[in-house]
Nucleic acid binder design. Structure first.
Lengths: 181, 181
DNA sequence: GCCTGATGATTAGCCTCCTAATCACATAAG
DNA sequence: CTTATGTGATTAGGAGGCTAATCATCAGGC
C-alpha cells in the first residue's frame, strides 16, 4: 500500500516548462523531491511484496520486529502503548494491529500484574518461527536493491539523505508535542 | 498518512550486532534502505502537512494536479481510467477519490458523448482557484527541504536514487502484466 | 440480428491508518 | 475518603488503499 500515486515522474523539461508559470518552482529541488518519493516508494514495494506474499503488512512486520528485538534482549514483554510509540502509530492503530496479529496466533495479550490498566504483548512460538523463516529473504531483497551501489556511493547516499531528513525535521517537527498551556 | 512506522532508525552498531544473528544481513545495505525509507517518509510528511491543513490528501492532490495539467494543455477532459493509470491506483480507488472531490465541488463528472460507458472528469473554477492558492506554498516547502543541498549534491543524489529505483524495477516489476495465457 | 468477449465505471467488503470519545484504573489533592 | 486529573486500552466512525464481482456498453464473428 504505497502512497506515492505518481507512476511516471515529470521529466526535467516539463519542470522547466512549469517553472515559467510558477516563480516559486525550483526545477532541481522538485527533481530531488520527486525522485526521493519515488525511490522510497519503490524500495518500500520491494519488501512489501515479500510481506504480502506471507500475509504481512508493513505495520504487522514492524510490530513483530519490535517484539522480536525485545525477545532477544530477554525482556519478554511490551505494552501496546510502547509499541505504538516506537512504531510511530497511534494507540488506536496499534490496538487494531494487535487484534489481527492475535487472531492469527502471532501474539498474546496478557494482563499486567502491577497495573490492571496495562497489557503485556508477547510473541508466540509460531511467530518466532515465522520471523526466522521470512527474515533471510527480507535481507536478501534489501541487499539486492542496494547492490548497484559501491560502498563509497552508499556512504554518500546516506549522507545526502541525512541532510534532507534533518532539514525535514527542522522545517516541520514530527509532532508539535501539544503543550497543555 | 505516511507508512514507515519506524520512528527511530536502528543505529549502525545495532545493525552490526544483528548481523551476527543473520548472515544475510549486510549492514551498509540496510543502512541505505532504512535511510531511504525514512527520508522518503519525512519528505512526504513535509508536503502532506500542508495538504492536510487544506483538507487535501496525497491522492486528492495528485488527481487535481493531473487534471490541472490537462487543463493547461487545453485538453479539458480526462476519464477516470486514465487518471487511475497515471496516478498509479486502481480504478476502484479513483472512483472513491472522484466521489469525495465531487462532493467538495472540486470536480464534475460529465457523460461522454461518443461512448456511453465513459465519463469525463473536469476541474471546477473553485478547484482552479484552490490550486493556484496552495501551489506556491507547496513549492516553497520543497525548496526549503532541499535547500541544504548544493546543485552538485542534488545531481549526485538524483543519480544515486535513480540507480536504486532502476534496480527496484528490475528485481520486482511494478505489475506483472497478467497475460491471459 | 445476435451472442461473445472486452472495457469503463461502480459496488461490496476487507485492511490499515487517523481523530475523538469512552471506559477502567491509578494517583495526587483536599 | 472522595474527588479530580491523568493514563492505558478500546471503540466508533471516517478516509483511502486493495481485490473481486457487477452492470452497462461497445465491437466483432457468425
Amino acid at each position: 500500500m504505497p502512497h506515492l500515486l505518481l507512476k511516471d515522474l515529470p521529466r526535467y523539461e516539463c519542470l522547466l516548462e512549469a517553472a515559467k508559470q510558477f516563480p516559486n518552482l525550483d526545477p532541481s529541488a522538485c527533481e530531488v523531491f520527486l525522485n526521493l518519493l519515488r525511490t522510497g516508494d519503490e524500495a518500500f514495494r520491494v519488501t512489501d511484496e515479500h510481506f504480502q506474499a506471507n500475509g504481512l503488512s508493513q505495520g504487522r512486520f514492524t510490530v513483530l520486529m519490535l517484539l522480536f528485538d525485545k525477545a532477544c534482549g530477554q525482556s519478554h514483554s511490551c505494552t501496546p502503548a510502547e509499541l505504538a510509540d516506537r512504531a510511530g502509530v497511534t494507540r488506536a492503530t496499534m490496538t487494531g494491529l494487535i487484534d489481527t496479529l492475535e487472531r492469527d496466533a502471532m501474539v498474546l495479550r496478557k494482563p499486567s500484574a502491577s497495573d490492571r490498566r496495562m497489557l503485556s504483548v508477547e510473541l508466540t512460538p509460531r511467530a518466532m518461527a515465522f520471523i526466522a523463516e521470512i527474515l533471510p529473504e527480507h535481507f536478501r531483497r534489501i541487499n539486492d536493491l542496494v547492490a548497484p551501489l559501491s560502498e563509497s556511493e552508499r556512504r554518500t547516499l546516506v549522507r545526502l539523505l541525512g541532510k534532507v531528513a534533518s532539514r525535514a525535521v527542522e522545517v516541520s517537527p514530527p509532532q508539535a508535542a501539544a503543550v497543555h498551556a
